[in-house]
Write a protein that binds this DNA or RNA. Structure first.
Lengths: 166, 166
DNA sequence: CCGGCCATGTAATGTGTTACATGATTTA
DNA sequence: TAAATCATGTAACACATTACATGGCCGG
């Protein structure tokens, strides 16, 4: 019991969009939510089974969320956010940059910049796509995309600042 | 054997600054590195013990890194970054904002904005402090502080954008 | 009819947190 | 001298990843 309510939240959330197979839940979490969430493969099916036993989802051709499930989802979303403390592999390397060496730092930062550039392009593409849609979820999805865009832009600006410093 | 090289990296890194007790390592990781790293309490002492057995640190009145330890740290820092995929508790709530409700979203975003404001002030304070120092680590620490500042600014801008949308 | 993807699951392992325990030292 | 903080550690538990296992279905 007391399975990870985090996993439940993501799975119920996916099914709140539309009924789908476990495989599709996995797909959705790794693609659509992939920018800010991850569930490992081996979590989803056990979670679905447990949710079914609790009457929060129903298994037909596809899994569908029940009324109790929607209610549970609302409850989970309203819980205080409890993020696991971050572990930023880039920042710890920069922090110990004296030991790592300036050249290696420069390379890491350039790589980070390049990654951020391509993420930025991707978010801009998705935002353009989002702007053509209109549904009850559109504005919320837009906000998550804007966050991704802002983060990517900040990373690029940071990288440029650092390359000057080095 | 195959203990978390991530924990080793943080512990050896802390000791590469200066010799200190396990307690001080824990303090340094939770305060100085706290913005982008965390090690749970119960990881640090076992890691120190194992590092000692491997001859990477020496235990006197304080723990000190050995030459082999410095070399190992360099090796660890040069490993490819392998961040665990993120789990952003805010973004998943925004993504399922239709179910959560617009009002609750607004409150979350306002809270996020307030948190970002106070982080920003803190980073600016630390940057001013950093500007008065000069040592071999100063520029690297500065870069991590700039990253924190940039992230906080991006969060504020994002929150303002969202509050308009809602 | 074969290779690749859809689909569902289990088991072993690794990793990390929390709660529990203990005692020394410092400070009010 | 009592409370807070320094200091070190263990054990139980929670959580997550990876690898393994199986089989249906569809397109070339």
């Amino acid at each position: 019991m007391a399975r990870s309510s985090q996993t439940d939240m993501a799975v119920l959330g996916a099914l709140s969009i539309e009924p789908m197979t476990g495989y599709a839940v996995r797909e959705m979490i790794s693609t659509v939510l992939g920018h800010f969430w991850s569930e490992s493969f081996g979590q989803i099916y056990p979670a679905l089974k447990a949710l079914e036993q609790d009457g929060l989802v129903e298994r037909g051709k596809r899994f569908a969320i029940t009324a109790a499930g929607e209610s549970r989802l609302r409850e989970l979303l309203r819980q205080p956010i409890h993020d696991i403390p971050p572990r930023n592999g880039l920042m710890i390397r920069i922090f110990f940059g004296r030991t790592l060496g300036a050249q290696a730092c420069r390379e890491l930062i350039e790589q980070t910049r390049a990654d951020a550039e391509s993420r930025l392009a991707e978010y801009e593409r998705l935002l353009a796509e989002n702007a053509t849609e209109s549904g009850p979820d559109t504005v919320f999805i837009r906000m998550t995309l804007l966050a991704g865009k802002g983060t990517a832009e900040a990373a690029i600006a940071w990288a440029d600042e650092c390359l000057v410093l080095l």
